[in-house]
Simulated assay, not measured.
Amino acid sequence: MRIGLLQCDDVAPELRRVHGNYPEMFAALFEKVEPSLEFRTWRCMDGEIPDDIDAVDAWMTTGSKHGVNDGLPWVEELSDFVRRLWRAGKPLVGICFGHQLMAKALGGEVVKSERGWGVGMSFNRVTTRAAWMEPWQPGLDLIVSHQDQVETLPPRPWSWAAAISAPIT
């Protein structure tokens, strides 16, 4: 299986020396589960947006220090690409900034939290059970570090990401 990594930032230099950049981190993590996976990276934050939605079997986005509402040209180009993937039914996983990008690109609303930065653990309730969710659990704790948040989910129909609700506060 080929995974397309839509890289939206670089890991901070002091952390990169120890842990590598996003492509190396994801490859190392996934290799522990499935060593045969192949990764191809597009540096979206440098304007490198894929032109072929079939270049790989599934797509992932990384986090970013940038926000989806910062008015950066590459963010809108990547949003267009996300909409193309969605219309074609291609698998896409949005991580952190990528989750916010997906929500906004598909018609949701992303805003800065009135409470400022959220850092720590967040309990998330799973509201819909899908067949792939094994082992099943009604909720999960996630480590968070963000100031932007998805305020309104995209209108239906939308992806399985809707199965995980906003953090319970």
Score class of each variant (00 low, 15 high):
V126W: 13
M1Y: 00
D51M: 08
W160C: 05
W74Q: 14
G67V: 03
R125Q: 15
F97P: 02
R129Q: 10
R16N: 04
R115S: 15
L101H: 01
G108H: 03
K112G: 14
F81R: 01
L101Y: 01
T41G: 03
W158K: 11
S113E: 05
E109Y: 04
T152P: 02
N21Y: 02
W86Q: 03
A88P: 12
G94Q: 13
K32A: 15
S159F: 03
G71T: 08
V18T: 10
W158R: 13
S113M: 03
T61Y: 09
G89Q: 05
W59A: 04
T128G: 08
P138A: 13
W160P: 02
R17F: 06
S145I: 08
R2M: 10
L5H: 06
T152L: 05
E134M: 07
D10F: 03
G20M: 06
A130W: 15
L140K: 08
R40F: 00
T128R: 15
H19I: 13
P135F: 01
R156S: 14
L101S: 05
V150L: 00
A105R: 05
A130T: 13
A12K: 09
Q7W: 01
R115M: 05
E77G: 10
S79M: 07
R2N: 00
G67I: 00
A88Q: 06
L92C: 06
V144S: 06
G98M: 02
L142D: 08
G108F: 12
F39T: 00
A163I: 00
P155E: 08
H19N: 13
W160T: 03
C8H: 10
S145K: 03
L78T: 08
A28F: 01
M45K: 11
M1Q: 14
L106K: 07
S79T: 05
H99R: 00
N124S: 05
V144M: 06
G120R: 00
D148S: 08
V144L: 10
A88W: 02
L6T: 08
Q7H: 04
S113H: 07
R115N: 11
P23V: 01
F123M: 15
E77P: 07
G67D: 07
V119Q: 11
S145V: 03
M121V: 10
D57R: 06
P13H: 14
D80Y: 04
T127F: 08
H66F: 02
W86R: 02
Y22Q: 07
K65F: 08
D52V: 12
M60A: 10
L153K: 04
S79H: 05
R129S: 01
D54C: 04
S36H: 12
G98V: 10
A163K: 07
S145F: 15
W158Y: 13
M121A: 13
A55W: 11
W86I: 09
G94I: 02
C8I: 01
F123L: 15
M25I: 07
W158Q: 10
L78F: 00
G63P: 11
Y22H: 03
I168M: 09
W136H: 13
I143E: 02
T41C: 06
M1A: 11
E34F: 11
S145G: 15
K112D: 15
F30Y: 14
E134Y: 12
V150G: 06
